[in-house]
Amino acid sequence: MSDKLSLPEKRWWKCSECQHVVHEKSSPTECPACHKRCTFADVTCYIPDCGGPSNPDPKLI
């Protein structure tokens, strides 16, 4: 058993322009919703309280 936190294979990413959320392995370079080159924030939930890595964190989106 490992002491390290395992990161999810796919993460949730939120567009800085239109707030669209995507579920991908890495942040996109262009938003699929607004079609702009945006900055994406990792909004993946890493704690069991909000559902764990298979869900976005509702406090961040």
Rank of each mutant, 00 (worst) to 15 (best):
P8A: 15
P8W: 03
E9K: 12
E9D: 12
K10I: 00
K10R: 15
K10E: 14
K10G: 01
R11W: 02
R11S: 13
W12I: 01
W12N: 07
W12T: 02
W13V: 01
W13M: 04
K14F: 01
K14Y: 01
K14S: 10
K14P: 00
C15P: 03
C15A: 08
S16E: 10
E17F: 08
C18K: 08
C18N: 05
C18Y: 08
C18R: 07
C18S: 08
Q19L: 08
Q19M: 06
H20F: 15
V21W: 02
V21C: 07
V22D: 11
V22S: 15
V22R: 06
H23N: 15
E24N: 14
E24L: 15
E24S: 07
E24G: 00
K25T: 11
K25L: 06
K25F: 06
K25G: 04
S26P: 00
S26H: 11
S27C: 05
S27N: 05
T29W: 06
T29F: 07
E30N: 02
E30K: 08
C31N: 09
C31Q: 09
C31A: 08
P32L: 04
P32I: 06
A33F: 12
C34D: 15
C34Y: 07
H35S: 09
H35I: 01
H35R: 14
H35W: 09
K36H: 10
K36Q: 13
R37C: 02
C38Q: 02
C38I: 03
T39Y: 13
T39A: 11
T39F: 13
T39R: 10
T39D: 11
T39I: 13
F40R: 03
F40W: 15
D42I: 02
D42L: 03
V43W: 04
V43I: 13
V43L: 03
T44K: 10
Y46I: 04
Y46P: 00
Y46D: 09
Y46T: 06
I47V: 13
I47D: 13
I47Y: 09
I47S: 12
P48Y: 04
P48C: 04
P48E: 15
D49S: 12
C50A: 12
G51F: 11
G52T: 04
G52R: 12
S54E: 15
S54V: 04
N55H: 15
P56I: 01
P56L: 11
P56E: 11
D57Q: 02
D57G: 02
D57P: 01
D57T: 00
D57F: 04
P58W: 12
P58E: 11
P58A: 07
P58Q: 10
P58C: 09
K59L: 12
L60Q: 15
